[in-house]
Write a protein that binds this DNA or RNA. Structure first.
Lengths: 207, 207
DNA sequence: GTCTATACTTCGATAGAC
DNA sequence: GTCTATCGAAGTATAGAC
């Protein structure tokens, strides 16, 4: 038992290191550094190992994306079941490096059709979960869907957050403040803070 | 006069053909086809000509982007001075192949810093023009900026349109209809159709 | 301005020794 | 499972003939 698991575990570890190296590279550098040689170098391994563990670069990028997906799923789950799911969801879409990585996956999706299909499925899946959560929130708190419904709100937040990420990378920031303020008001309406949280946020003390 | 202009005109024509070929490739295929060899092949020219006319690929991509910018500027100008500027702006951001090209420029901006700077400047410039136009519209028609101001509206439309383009390429469409309907209501409010246009749109005839 | 030829680098991927 | 060696294709870019 112990004799067989040794080499296999080492093997798995190299595979994981490659995935993690590519994952880091996509977050820090971008899609143009996604190559067998650069990923291997980052992982401290020989480039040929990439093709030992993965049939092609497409297979690797899908593995990396699935790692992102899994990681994102737990954060997503955590956000939706938190005390302030709408705020948490906004923060998740907006602030995390995962948002930047998403842009790189979209770019690589142009080159690797199988990745594109993977992204389509997971994208629809995440949206479906968000919609269901938001519909529950609407029902529980009795929001009307006249100005904007749960489905629209979910997509709108996602679209605005993605736009912030992209424009932030290019360096365009004009009118960002206004929309940040608009989102803040939206969150105040759909996911209001409690009194004690407000006190904490404003820094004021009772008495 | 005629003798000197001959070869120079041919020279300029090759340069333009290269720019146009790259422009077309970015629209039809994507950033990964942006290479000296492929652009030249598309233009029906030898790859080495690329480096005769352009110091580097970065210089070429900037020339291509400026071509996009110029083209977009005239469409932009036309939209903002049209009878229904808000609707025209939405259609411009949303429907045109230029939207898809923009995604490719963003990707290439990761590789070419000078392109990124070019995009930043032109991006802010276009947004500024849209804001000024929208502020004029708000003032003329007496809209309040309580729910959403002119600056927020401009960015919101741009963000949602960009998101439609990106998700459309990946194949994610969930909840798009709801936001399309929301935008339609937004346009009805901020850029209402006249009675005769409504009659045309609904297909009904008077009498 | 356009051509041929070519230098140099990096890419994905495979074969075969250990 | 990891190594050395290597292939062929494609990438940017330059030199020099015409």
């Amino acid at each position: 038992m112990a004799s067989t698991s040794g080499s296999q575990a080492r093997g798995s570890r190299s595979r994981l290191r490659l995935i993690e190296a590519a994952y880091d590279l996509l977050g820090e550098e971008g899609y143009h550094t996604f190559s067998a040689r650069q990923v291997a170098q980052r992982a401290g391994l020989k480039p040929q190992l990439v093709h030992y563990y993965f049939r092609s670069m497409e297979e690797l990028v899908i593995a990396v994306f699935q790692r992102s997906s899994a990681k994102y799923f737990s954060l997503h789950d955590e956000a939706l079941s938190s005390r302030h799911p709408v705020r948490a969801l906004w923060a998740l879409n907006c602030n995390l490096p995962e948002g930047k990585r998403m842009t790189e996956y979209v770019a690589l999706g142009k080159v690797y059709p199988a990745l594109r299909e993977e992204m389509r499925q997971s994208g629809e899946s995440f949206r479906r979960m968000q919609i269901e959560a938001m519909e529950r929130i609407y029902a529980e708190r009795g929001f009307d869907a006249v100005t904007i419904g749960p489905r629209g709100l979910v997509l709108l937040m996602s679209a605005v957050a993605r736009n912030f990420v992209i424009e932030g990378e290019v360096g365009v920031t004009l009118a960002h403040e206004e929309v940040q303020a608009l989102i803040a008001r939206l969150l105040d309406h759909f996911d209001p803070l409690d009194e004690d949280e407000l006190a904490l946020a404003s820094g004021s003390l009772p008495g």
